[in-house]
Design a protein around this nucleic acid. Structure first.
Lengths: 134, 134
DNA sequence: GATGTAGTTGAAAATTTTTTTCGATTAGGA
DNA sequence: TCCTAATCGAAAAAAATTTTCAACTACATC
C-alpha cells in the first residue's frame, strides 16, 4: 500500500539521498499511523536521535510525512491518504475517518488560498460512550 | 466583551482562587487571540514562568482557555467564541473565520460522541496570494 | 475585622525535548 | 573504483516544561 519504493524515488528526485536510516524511519512509520516520537524510535533503535529529527523534518518537507498535534506531544504519520482524526478524551484512543466536510462542500468566501487543512474531533469513542450508559 | 468577571466566577465556582496572577494572565489573553507563550509572558512580566504554565493549564482545564497547535509552538486564546484558523504559510499571518462546516452539516455516522473539534486551514492569505500574481 | 488553612506562588533545580557542532562515514554520480 | 557533497551520530548546548518546597495569600469562618 505504501510504496516505499515510490517514496525513495521522491527523496532522490528532490536531490536527497536514500539512506538506510531514512528507509528505516519510513518502515517504522508504515507500521502504524499517528505515532509519537518514542513509538517511532522504538521501531528503529539503530537510527540516532538527531537523525530521527532530521529525517522527520525532511520527510515532512517533501510531503511524505504529516506532523500532527493532537494535544499530547507531536505525532507523525505517512501522508498517504487524506483523513482526519477522532481523539477519545476518555481512553486516549485515536482513530481516523475519511469523511471531509472541507473537500465535500468548500468553505464560503474566506479570501484565502487553501492548500491544506487539518480537522480533529474530540469526544468519546464508541466504547467509552457505550460503557457509560447504552 | 470578555467578561473577566464571569471568568473569575467560573474559577471560584470550581473551587479555585482568583489571584492577581490569574487575572493578569486573563487580561493578557484578552489583548489578542492565539498568542504564543512568549507573547503572553511579555504582557504580564510580573507573573512567574511556573505560574504561567500552571495558570494556562488550569484555565484550559476549566474551558476558559483553548490551547492551539498551529505548527509552530503552542498558542493560547480565550475560548469565548467558536472559530477556526487560517494560517498563511507564506507570511505566517494567522486569522480567524467563523464559518464551521462541522456545526453546519454534521458528519456522517462516525460512531463517536463529539464534544469539540478544531479545524485549521493552511495556505496563502489574500495579501500573499495577491502579491504574486493578481 | 481578625484568624486559620488549603490553595497558590516563584526561585532553583531537575527533566525532557529539540537543535547545534563537527569529525567520521557513505550514497551515488562520474 | 573514485570523489565529493550529503549524511550520520555522539556530545554538548539550548530551549521548553515540570518538580520541589518554603513562603505567601485568598477567602471562608469566626
Amino acid at each position: 500500500m505504501a510504496g516505499l519504493e515510490t517514496v525513495a524515488g521522491k527523496i532522490r528526485g528532490r536531490g536527497y539521498k536514500v539512506t538506510p536510516q531514512r528507509m528505516a524511519v519510513l518502515e517504522a512509520l508504515a507500521a502504524e499511523q499517528h505515532q509519537s516520537m518514542d513509538s517511532i524510535r522504538s521501531r528503529c533503535p539503530r537510527v540516532g536521535l538527531v537523525t530521527m529529527y532530521r529525517t522527520l523534518d525532511l520527510l515532512s518537507e517533501i510531503g511524505v510525512v504529516r506532523r500532527l498535534d493532537l494535544g499530547d506531544g507531536p505525532r507523525y504519520e505517512l501522508a498517504e491518504d487524506h483523513h482526519h482524526h477522532m481523539i477519545c478524551e476518555s481512553c486516549g484512543d485515536i482513530s481516523e475517518f475519511e469523511e471531509c466536510p472541507i473537500d465535500d462542500g468548500p468553505l464560503g468566501d474566506l479570501d484565502f488560498e487553501i492548500s491544506s487543512h487539518s480537522l480533529e474531533v474530540y469526544g468519546r469513542c464508541a466504547v467509552c460512550a457505550g460503557g457509560e450508559r447504552r
